[in-house]
């Protein structure tokens, strides 16, 4: 016997002598979408998901294949070409006071920005999820200790800590230094969120039934509680990518970031502020790219949030 029972909806005909007709046969064998499938279906319907995704793809192409966009080396600066205006031959967006190509610097600046943003977010999310899960699931003394640890790191004034740290690590090359320092301070918000989610999830029936089936404490924590609590973290982490990119630019602006002549949006903004009045374009373009990148991750995170938790919006 097959188990393909199909429930059918019947519609009464207009004329009594006609047979009833079936419409909309319900296929019960169809696979259910599940939590992630439904979230993905909602995401696909949201127009605000496609706009940032398109821009993100452009950014990623710029990270991996910058030479597609420009043939000019961002660190090659000819002083004879200093301060060319937008649209100058060979320089689409003009040149800086040092004679570097503005467009090329924007393209190559995507690499450190996205490296830092994405790696710091992944590291922060990794440690945040583990610490939050352990604290929320284990409870008791371990939770008390981990929660105090979170509070200690949150209460430190972050910008100050970054600057002090960067002063200490002056000799270390830019990108690694920034990734390390940001990651040290980048896990607390995720840990807090995860802890709250885990505390809400750990007493649900599926966890109890896993226990009844003999699954170990550790297994329950990582196989059942963690996957069921992690969804909101994904949206927050996506938004964080933009925040770290902005922070990198701010730190580079203060002169403590990547340094040297390396292409960095923050450095370009910092250099352009001196000539804001005579060459506003030099300041405008790196600012624009920074805002668009930040907006991309915020919109993406917002779309993910809506897809994961559609009730929150309404």
């Amino acid at each position: 016997m097959t188990n393909t029972i199909s429930a059918e909806h019947f519609v009464a005909p207009f004329n009594e002598d006609e047979d009833v007709i079936t419409v909309d046969a319900l296929d019960e064998t169809a696979k259910s979408l599940g939590f992630w499938g439904e979230a993905w279906a909602r995401l696909k319907r949201n127009p605000l998901f496609y706009i940032p995704t398109a821009f993100l793809i452009v950014l990623l192409v710029a990270v991996f294949f910058p030479s597609i966009f420009t043939a000019i080396d961002p660190t090659y600066c000819a002083i004879t070409d200093s301060s060319l205006p937008v649209g100058a031959p060979g320089h689409l967006l003009g040149t800086t006071t040092q004679g570097c190509d503005v467009f090329s610097r924007l393209v190559y600046g995507a690499q450190p920005s996205l490296q830092i943003g994405i790696i710091v977010t992944l590291l922060g999310a990794f440690f945040g999820v583990i610490i939050g899960t352990v604290a929320g699931y284990m409870g008791g003394i371990l939770d008390a200790i981990l929660t105090r640890l979170i509070e200690i790191f949150i209460s430190l004034p972050s910008m100050l800590s970054f600057i002090v740290f960067l002063q200490m690590m002056k000799g270390v090359p830019g990108v690694f230094k920034l990734i390390f320092i940001f990651s040290v301070f980048g896990w607390m918000s995720i840990a807090r969120l995860m802890r709250a989610n885990v505390m809400a999830a750990k007493n649900q029936e599926f966890v109890t039934s896993a226990k009844a089936l003999g699954l170990s404490n550790f297994g329950r924590m990582f196989q059942h509680v963690l996957p069921n609590s992690i969804a909101p973290v994904i949206a927050v982490a996506t938004m964080n990518v933009g925040a770290w990119i902005v922070l990198e630019a701010s730190i580079s602006y203060l002169g403590l970031g990547l340094g040297g002549n390396s292409a960095s949006w923050g450095m370009d903004i910092s250099n352009a502020t001196n000539t804001m009045i005579v060459a506003p374009g030099m300041l405008f373009f790196p600012c624009l790219v920074l805002v668009l990148t930040s907006l991309t991750f915020i919109l993406l995170g917002d779309a993910l949030q809506d897809a994961i938790d559609p009730k929150a919006r309404r």
Binding site: G242, V246, A249, S250, Y253, G266, I269, T273, M276, P280, L283, C287, L290, V291, S294, L295, I298, L299, D302
Partner: peptide, 17 residues
């Protein structure tokens, strides 16, 4: 959302300009 994605660094100079 747009406002929050404009970093103080950019907004500051934009307003100054």
């Amino acid at each position: 959302l747009v406002l929050v994605s404009i970093p103080p660094l950019v907004l500051g100079y934009a307003l100054q300009f």
